[in-house]
Design a protein around this nucleic acid. Structure first.
Length: 790
RNA sequence: GCGAGAGUGGCGGAAUUGGUAGACGCACUGGACUUAGGAUCCAGCUCUGGCGACAGAGUGGGAGUUCAAGUCUCCCCUCUCGCACCA
């Protein structure tokens, strides 16, 4: 929860999103929550002013992108649930079934809108290595997602003596050195040539049935590993352009329409997947790369050979090293117009069409005579209708809503035109909100260049790892588009990125009732955990991300009521550095609470004395004893906390530094009769309070006011430390014998290396370990240690 | 399968450039104060042996570099995360 003590779920909405992305449902939720805590905010004004503007400029940019071909419409395969009439995201498909109705999901070819992010694939990839402020984890995830492969596109002529089609099939490969070993070809089931080529062949009917069956197959990652490779001969052959061999064309479920050209040349001897397929269907296996140390035989080998070697069965290229053949064959293909070097990316264009009510409507109009026509700029924004029925099970109400969908063609004036009823992915909105935040009410254009020049790029961006790819990559793409349109001057929106960890907790499972809430688990008398509903023994499962479905959640209100928001926040920050996952523990909260009380009690006890004392900020060497130590510790604490927060966001060590200071304060308590005590104690407490203010603001504010400050602690300047106050009275020197610590002694700060060495060599405890052994060498590390090598 | 990250006490976690491993906190143990303590204060708390002084071992395992390795190099193991029939 945030500074207002709002539960995380709503805080996330408040912090994450621009009002334009809010749905009516979560706005109502927000209203209720904020009312509950007595926070007033003019939502209607915010929505009335922000939302249409936000839509206007987002749609304006869409039109610009459409003009440049960066926004386009194409057919694409989606997960489709027929009973629900909706498109499903991959995570909404469970074992091939729709999560809502449980009926099978099929692949459907649907016309959708896309952003051409692939135009920027190379640039996004190159700059992934130029983001030093980002965690490597995220940049490598992005690089893998973009997935660059260097290879060649090769044309295979279709062998069709009857119809004599001079048509070729294009394949993409990264192993053009193995073309001679391509003994069959596979097309993705969705590949358009599958049905056209098989037409009229004896296989036609079975191929059609196969393609239909594959369209029902669940393509989600979970089931894909259990997939059996299957395929079917489509009744037509093609010619291997290098070996001249006639090779069968299959369609197979492991060929993906989305990658490369949707067609694969299969080299079973050197690709495991092709090998499995060839063995299953009894296809030829021709070895073309021979390893140095053993012989390969296509009829007997048990797995594909993917290593290096020399070319065999490859005509003029025989005997050549295969890495060299990689280049030479590519050149040969280009010289003979059979193929060309090319680069393929895994990254696909960004599908932005959503069949939903929320999100900015795509500003396009479909006309029977003119086709797809953009909305005139002057007619923007196209806003969502307020009278839509949102209750129809998951479907968008927009296509059915005539007041919205029915319109006039801006080109020919046909009154029977229809608006595009797809809305934009809300990721579009989150791809530029940070630019809009620079001047949310600016209306001369999409982006206020002056404001953006001043504020952007974002110095420090914070979010969960779940955004590592989609949001962060889309934002980088969108920013490049804005740059190319001259709206911003930079390519990268976020200079530094911190991905915070998740809050985790163990799960509890009852054999009767499934997952249990923590309060539904009771300690039985036999020490076993039992379900409060049925008394069956409860299994404590692994620690997982807190989620409503697993019920391993903590109701924030309980903690807020018992300890308050400050304690709870202190614990969250203290338990682990922010980038790491945090395992929730109840006792830890107690510890944080104890610490705050400890600070409070100390301040209260000494308040009368320190209240009117000016804080001591003078030299260290004017002090002595415990007061001196306290003063030094205070400066050291300021230094540590500043460094930990400013450079690394390591609040856990910052808090522990203040805890140490408080421990020293308690230890120095007995010196409270010293004349310098009030000033030094005041400086120490005041510093501790300001250092804690970002972490426990209410608590700090309270003590701050008690100490007589009229202004808020939030307005106090961050304390600075004096270098001369960090100086120790004497140094602790460690004596090692052969690298093992054997003794230690104190020495004056200004002692010379030679004096330290001599003192170490006369140290009795150390000498015990030297005994009669000969001293070979003595190493003195300045102001730290002496290592005696014997 | 590919890629990335991480393995430190009973637990969460500390440890600038290689230089006292275990800061700080939790839990636990003992003591003080107290009618009481689930409050507070003080102390102990890596493991093994020993009453103790002390000794030995110790940062997933194994080698190596170095006067010196949690930290650097190589190999292996385990876990987490991401991608995944990517041609």
């Amino acid at each position: 929860w945030d500074a207002f003590g709002m539960p995380a779920e709503n805080a996330a909405i408040a912090h994450d999103s621009h009002p334009a992305t809010w749905t009516s449902q979560n706005i109502d939720n927000m209203r209720t929550q904020l009312k509950r805590i007595g926070f007033s905010y003019d939502w209607d004004r915010e929505l009335a002013t922000c939302k249409p503007d936000y839509y206007r400029w987002e749609q304006w940019l869409f039109l610009k992108m459409y003009e440049k071909g960066l926004a386009y419409r194409k057919e694409s395969f989606v997960n489709w649930c027929e009973p629900c009439q909706t498109v499903l995201a991959n995570e909404q498909v469970e074992a091939g079934m729709c999560w809502r109705c449980g009926k099978p999901v099929r692949q459907k070819n649907l016309s959708q809108w896309f952003f051409k992010i692939t135009d920027y694939a190379e640039d996004l990839l190159v700059y992934s290595d130029k983001l030093p402020g980002w965690p490597d984890k995220v940049t490598t995830m992005q690089k893998n997602w973009i997935g660059k492969s260097i290879g060649a596109e090769i044309e295979f002529l279709i062998d069709d003596p009857v119809k004599d089609r001079q048509q070729t099939i294009s394949v993409f490969t990264t192993r053009q050195d193995t073309v001679f070993g391509a003994t069959f070809m596979c097309l993705a089931p969705e590949h358009p040539l599958v049905l056209t080529l098989s037409k009229g062949t004896p296989e036609e009917a079975s191929v059609q049935a196969f393609v239909e069956r594959m369209s029902m197959q669940d393509r989600s990652a979970k089931t894909v590993e259990n997939f059996e490779k299957e395929g079917i001969f489509i009744g037509v052959y093609c010619i291997n352009p290098l070996s001249g061999g006639k090779i069968p064309i299959f369609t197979a479920n492991f060929a993906l329409m989305e990658y490369g050209t949707g067609a694969v040349m299969c080299v079973p001897a050197h690709d495991q997947r092709d090998f499995d397929f060839a063995r299953k269907y009894g296809l030829d296996i021709t070895v073309v790369v021979a390893p140095d140390d053993h012989d390969l035989d296509g009829t007997t080998m048990t797995e594909a050979y993917t290593g290096q070697g020399n070319m065999v069965n490859s005509g003029n290229f025989n005997g050549m090293d295969n890495t060299r053949a990689q280049e030479d064959i590519a050149s040969y293909l280009e010289a003979n117009h059979i193929g060309k070097r090319t680069v393929s990316y895994r990254l696909r264009d960004w599908g932005i069409s959503r069949q939903r009510y929320w999100g900015a409507p795509i500003p396009m109009i479909h006309c029977k005579t003119c086709g797809i026509v953009p909305v005139a700029e002057a007619d923007l924004p196209i806003v969502l209708p307020e009278d839509a029925n949102l209750l129809a099970g998951g479907q968008s109400p927009l296509p059915e809503l005539d007041t919205f969908a029915h319109t006039k063609c801006p080109k020919c004036g046909d009154p029977e035109a229809r608006r595009e009823t797809d809305t934009m992915d809300t990721f579009v909105e989150s791809s530029w909100y940070f630019e809009r935040y620079c001047s949310p009410h600016y209306n001369e254009g999409m982006i206020d260049k002056e404001a953006v020049d001043y504020w952007m790029p974002v110095d420090q961006y914070i979010g969960g790892v779940e955004h590592a790819i989609l949001h962060l990559l889309y934002s980088r793409f969108y920013t490049r588009v804005l740059k190319d349109m001259g709206l911003v001057k930079y390519k990268e929106p976020f200079t530094c990125l911190l991905t915070q960890g998740m809050v985790c907790k163990e799960t509890a499972v009852c054999p009767e009732h499934g997952f249990l809430l923590p309060e539904e688990v009771a300690q039985g008398n036999n020490g076993q955990n039992a379900c409060t509903k049925c008394e069956s023994p409860v299994t404590i499962g692994r620690v997982e991300k807190m989620s409503k479905s697993k019920k391993n959640v903590i109701d924030p209100n309980i903690l807020l009521n018992e300890y308050g928001a400050d304690t709870t926040r202190l614990f969250c920050l203290f338990a682990a550095p922010p980038e790491r996952d945090l395992e929730w523990s109840e006792q830890g909260v107690e510890g944080g609470f104890r610490f705050l009380n400890r600070v409070w009690r100390f301040a209260a006890k000494h308040m009368a004395i320190i209240k009117d004392a000016p804080p001591y900020t003078g030299r260290l060497d004017h002090l002595s004893g415990d007061v001196k130590d306290l003063y030094r510790k205070t400066h050291e604490t300021i230094q540590r906390v500043t460094r930990d927060i400013e450079n690394r966001f390591h609040f856990n060590t910052a808090i522990s530094a203040v805890m140490e200071l408080v421990n020293v304060l308690y230890g120095a308590d007995k010196a409270s009769s010293a004349p310098e005590w009030p000033g030094v104690a005041r400086f120490a407490i005041e510093s501790a309070v300001v250092l804690l203010a970002p972490i426990v603001p209410h608590f700090s504010e309270e003590i701050w006011a008690e100490m007589g400050h009229a202004e808020s602690v939030l307005l106090a300047s961050w304390p600075g430390y004096r270098d001369d106050a960090l100086v120790e009275d004497d140094l602790l020197i460690v004596i090692q014998i052969n690298g093992k610590v054997r003794s230690r002694f104190n020495v004056a700060v200004d002692a010379s290396d030679e004096a330290i060495k001599q003192k170490a060599l006369s140290d009795e405890r150390a000498l015990k370990f030297v005994k009669d052994k000969r001293i070979k060498k003595v190493i003195v590390v300045k102001k730290k240690l002496v290592n005696i090598v014997v």
